[in-house]
Design a protein around this nucleic acid. Sequence first.
DNA 1: ATCCAGGGACGCG
DNA 2: CGCGTCCATGGA
Length: 289
Amino acid sequence: MEEKIIIENQESFNLKHIFECGQCFRWNEEEDGSWIGVIKDAVIKVRIEDNKVIFTGKVLGNQDFKKIVYDYFDLNTNYTDYKNELSKIDEYLRESIKFGEGIRILKQDLWETIISFIISANNNIPRIKKIINAISSTYGKKIVFEEKEYYLFPTPEELSKATVEDLRKLGLGFRDKRIYETTRLINENTISLEEIENFADTARAREELLKLDGVGPKVADCILLFSLKRLDVFPIDVWVRRVMNDLYIHNEDEEKVNKKELQCLAEEKFKGLSGIAQQYLFYWKRETA
DNA sequence: ATCCAGGGACGCG
DNA sequence: CGCGTCCATGGA
């Protein structure tokens, strides 16, 4: 059965901004300007007509489509408040927010986000997307929507069927062992996803994530921000380092900019909204480079 | 050909 | 601990 919901006058909602700001890897733009994505247990198509956002899709089992959409797109949160707050900081924030005004931080599935960002290490976005698609179509469940086949991201149990060699064939490169090992740790419940989701303390959640193979400081921060909604964490990659150095530090050698120094600067300037500030700055810098 | 991509594991001092 | 080095792969 095809699902459908329509939302009118949704603030801060631009499809390009949401899907191209580097937080997700399974959304693609269609010929007609709509976007189709596969998330945990659903295929969703989003399009915008006038003042309406229209979601259609197909879900696995008897799940509530509306709840899935609201949770994933964080539709009960008002981003205008965040933007107003961040705009007070300086001209750079105002400009980056103007550039990516329709960004929202998605609430993505923890397991999928962990694997996706392990794959992201020393990799580029088109290839990350390609690999995640290959993993899904090989090990995930098929789901049909508008007469086309899509594949859900495999569960830990489904992915445990892959050997290191199998993973290598999907183009994972040196990340094959990391994915294999992390899948094993989750399946054996040595590390508990449920426990991580329920930690009140961000530091505790990060500490636990760091025990996974292939999860270092940057990947852990991305997981905390893009799945666990810790809006105060500030993932630092090459682009963030670049934009922060250009705007605030002005070091001749950008690679020499200390990570700890950047963390402190972000905390001082952006405070509890560091993660959101990071997304506006990242998107702005990467798209206008 | 050489460099780079939303870095991390590992070994060293 | 801080620091170099290596890691697969594909596109520019």
